[in-house]
């Protein structure tokens, strides 16, 4: 089966002078309209933050009181990012290494006590390999609370039919 033959020469439109002037005027008017009432789809990232919906797979947070140390999260982890560590007498607690983590969410799904949860943010910067290991106290801190308590404006994304993505301020 051969492909369909497509004529590659675009026929010239042969617009009359009046039509050309009208098209130019329309383009300029559209530009002026956007100039007066801009429809922006970008936002000022570090100052303004977008909060994703429920179910977003961000950083992983451990609730230390709920955890029973069953090691299921360490077993299911496909990237071997989650490992169990000794925390006191006969007590196992998970720790995650973000150097390996692929944010698949298996550990959160498999946890029988709902001790693990996803935070709703992803924005962290690591300066060294050691700081990518979240162990002990560090693993139980919720990064959402740190980010939301700062001096940032929080936005939520909504899909609008006319404008596409809209960032609505929550706070």
């Amino acid at each position: 089966m051969g492909g369909k033959y497509v004529e590659k020469v675009v026929p010239s439109r042969n617009l009359s002078l009046l039509n050309k002037a009208k098209n130019h005027a329309e383009a300029l008017a559209l530009g002026a309209k956007f100039l007066v009432r801009p429809l922006r789809i970008t936002y000022r990232y570090p100052i303004v933050k977008e909060i994703p919906d429920q179910g977003y797979r961000g950083l992983i947070v451990l609730d230390d009181n709920k955890c029973i140390g069953c090691s299921l999260c360490a077993r299911i982890c496909p990237a071997s990012a989650m490992k169990m560590f000794q925390a006191g007498e006969k007590k196992l607690r998970p720790a995650v290494n973000y150097e390996r983590c692929v944010f698949c969410g298996y550990c959160v799904d498999i946890c029988p006590e709902n001790a693990l949860k996803h935070a709703r943010t992803h924005d962290v910067v690591f300066e060294s390999g050691e700081s990518m290991l979240y162990i002990g106290e560090k693993f139980t801190l919720d990064p959402d609370t740190q980010i939301l308590s700062g001096k940032v404006r929080i936005y939520r994304v909504r899909v609008d039919e006319k404008r596409g993505l809209i960032y609505e301020p929550i706070r």
Binding site: G31, F34, L35, P38, L39, R40, I41, T42, R44
Partner: peptide, 17 residues
């Protein structure tokens, strides 16, 4: 700035908001 407004962006802003 004008190009930014029409192309749904902000244009230069970061140095002096």
């Amino acid at each position: 700035k004008i190009a930014g407004r029409i192309q749904m962006r902000y244009g230069p802003l970061e140095i002096s908001p």
